[in-house]
């Protein structure tokens, strides 16, 4: 397995508080890497640094061997990194179908094909058809004409993932993909993530709170506490790690 994304000695501080202290981690191709840690450990900030939403004060981020530390987020997307947000960010004034079409138009725009030119008044038929079949694949086709803001929490997250996937990323970063979901929806997410990894060969990087979900899909774990990496490795290894037990699991499951 080759290294796809590598963070080295990342430091990040807000004016009054240091959030990340020399964080290093590696995401290998085709693994499902989950970052866990208590609230305030710096997971979301690490996500922002890795995806290009914010710049770290020091340290480097490499993607496929290339230094992308200072690269704009949208350029990282061009190189194959996609991400979702903790609270799904959708075009809430638009229909579900138009959300997907928009993502496909962005893809064509990036590729510079004639389907994504500015003078195109209506989206190309091909893109509309593709959007419908993608929606069907994810069980959202019956909501196609509904306004995105009327979707359930779980469906919103699913739609956002669909938008991200329409750019055919190699690595997707999912920030708390099951937060606030019902158990059934969580199991669906686990199944979907596993399918993406096993059948489509994607690499996934997640932050997640729910331990059942974590152990249902992770092939590797990184444990973050107070801005530092305290353990990293295969799930079973980490589960047995005494330091992690002490700091993290020892406090009871409700913290996890």
């Amino acid at each position: 397995m080759t290294d796809l994304l590598e963070a080295r000695d990342i430091c990040f501080a807000y004016p009054s508080v240091r959030v990340l202290k020399d964080v290093s981690m590696t995401v290998r191709a085709n693994e499902c890497h989950v970052i866990i840690g208590p609230n305030g450990a710096g997971k979301t900030t690490l996500f922002k640094v890795l995806s290009g939403e914010t710049l770290p004060q020091s340290g480097t981020v490499r993607y496929s061997g290339e230094d992308v530390t200072r690269l704009d987020a949208w350029k990282r997307v061009h190189r194959g990194i996609g991400r979702t947000f903790q609270v799904a960010r959708l075009f809430s004034e638009q229909t579900v179908l138009n959300n997907v079409i928009l993502a496909l138009e962005c893809r064509e725009n990036i590729k510079g094909t004639s389907l994504g030119r500015w003078w195109r008044l209506n989206p190309a038929r091909e893109l509309v058809d593709e959007a419908m079949s993608r929606l069907a694949e994810y069980g959202l086709d019956r909501r196609a004409q509904d306004s995105a803001k009327n979707l359930s929490h779980g469906d919103k997250k699913r739609l956002e993932l669909l938008l991200t996937l329409s750019l055919h990323p190699k690595l997707i970063m999912l920030d708390e993909p099951t937060a606030g979901m019902a158990p059934d929806d969580r199991r669906a997410v686990v199944a979907m993530v596993n399918r993406l990894r096993e059948e489509e060969g994607l690499t996934l990087l997640l932050t997640e709170h729910d331990m059942e979900v974590v152990f249902g899909l992770a092939t590797r774990l990184t444990v973050l506490s107070q801005g530092k990496v305290i353990a990293s490795g295969e799930p079973e290894e980490v589960r047995r790690d005494p330091v992690v037990h002490e700091i993290y699991f020892g406090k009871g499951r409700h913290h996890a």
Binding site: F85, R89, C106, R120, L121, L163
Partner: peptide
Amino acid sequence: WWVWHGNLGRILAAIRQEPERVRFLGIDV
């Protein structure tokens, strides 16, 4: 009218609604 209703207009409207999402769809906002 053409710009507003066309592909460019759709992307601009998307930027108004959720600029971060558009950025992570690979668009230089």
